[in-house]
Design a binder for these strands. Sequence first.
DNA 1: TTAGGGTTAG
Length: 515
Amino acid sequence: MRRIIFPKSLLPLLHSRAIISGQIHDPFVAGNILESLLRAYPSAHFQAHALLSFSPHHSTFMYNTLLHAYLCNNLPTHAILLFYEMLLHGTTPNNHTFPLVLKAFSQAPQYKNGAFIHTMILKRRLDSDSYVHASLIHFYGAAGCIVEARRVFDEKQLPGISAWTALLSGYAKNGNLSMAWELFVRMPDRNLVSWSAMISGYVQCRKPEKALALFQEMMKSKVRPNCSVLVNVLVAAAEVGALQVGKWVHMYLEKNCMCLSSNLKTSLVHMYARCGDLLSAKQTFRRFRDKNVDLWNAIITGIGLYGRGEEAFELFVNMSDDGIPPDDMTFIGLLSACSHSGMVAEGRKCFEAMSKIYRIEPKLEHYSCMVDLLAKAGLVNEMVQLIQTMPMEPNARIWGSLFSSCRILGDITSGEIVGKQLIQLEPRNSGCYVQLANLYASSGRWQEAVAVRDIMKRRGVVLEPGCSLIEVDGMVHEFLVGDKTHPKANEICCVLDVMARSLRVEGYVLNNSVS
DNA sequence: TTAGGGTTAG
């Protein structure tokens, strides 16, 4: 018998007929009704679960179909519970079940015991299935168990392209870009997803310029990009301020009539805002009809970045008028807008309202924004009080804000304590050592300044050179401190000299202190 | 008997 997808209009009739005639006892018929229901109503997973529960036969196919529906609706925990229910019911999982279950475990990190699935797969000898194999590698990679992922990969004689891609992605997610690149170069075949995984790896590891270069190479190889790739390109463009690249992506999407996913819409607005083109950010935002909370957050955060706090709050009101409830990211955008605009009173109100009115408990990031706001306003006592009442340990950004305040106020004693704390939190970050050494130097404590630099050297911490990027005609140029390898370095230095001289003539004095 | 993988922001 061939697979049947029942039309939406006939579903209730066919379902009742199947019950009356007793055909519902046929697992194939019951499975088809369940699948047809979920095709017609993709969000009807709870009804589908009820149908499964009342069905006389619980086939593996029915469970797999429902597992798939839960994952499509971003409900991995429900999928995991359904899998347990499946096992309790005595229904045998098959090669189609495990990729779904492994994905659910990857998406629900609170379930840390997913490794037992591997044992079940081995017992059933399903590890040779290419889908199961790639899913296992992905599962271990996402869980940070890259050694195990590699072991699974190496166990198969001829791993498929998905297995290669899953391992590549796993290395990138765990910060090992060189190994990811090695796999990308070595893999016997590449497809769009492999390119996408490598580009995404560069974006995740904060190497946006490499992501853009690889994207150019991908286009030269005549591989057509999809939404996933373009979202990553927009993120990379936003990171380095490559407005022309971002605009090119926007045009490409329109020219090819590509359907814009919510991620793409958000990334476009984010890109324009981060590249400083606020007008395009606002125009693009207005053009989109279905605005979800993420899109609103992108424009609120973007506007706030440029010190337009009041406009950010106006947008927040518009968002509420549109019936979109805020989430925790909305408040990060608003608090950050207050910080960039010096709106202390509004920031305090906003911080209070988020838990009292909107029932959103402040996370570390919200405290971080609030501390930043108070630090910039010079309200040190209030800032210290807030840090002391935080229900979690402060992060390096919070200590950094506190350190800046101490430095500005010339409070060397407190600055010393905070600076040491920062080094303890981020021992590999050269900036922490340099800031403490500068603090000592600013108060004439030269020996201690030298001692901090010595500790840094002994620990093998390399001073990361300052770097700035600029995009000219679609090309991103990178400049490091002391680096004169740029082909137009001499001309650029001449212009900078003229500018520096003009500034001196106007009475400006060079400030070399680290902020 | 049908179905399942690897890539997607802040």
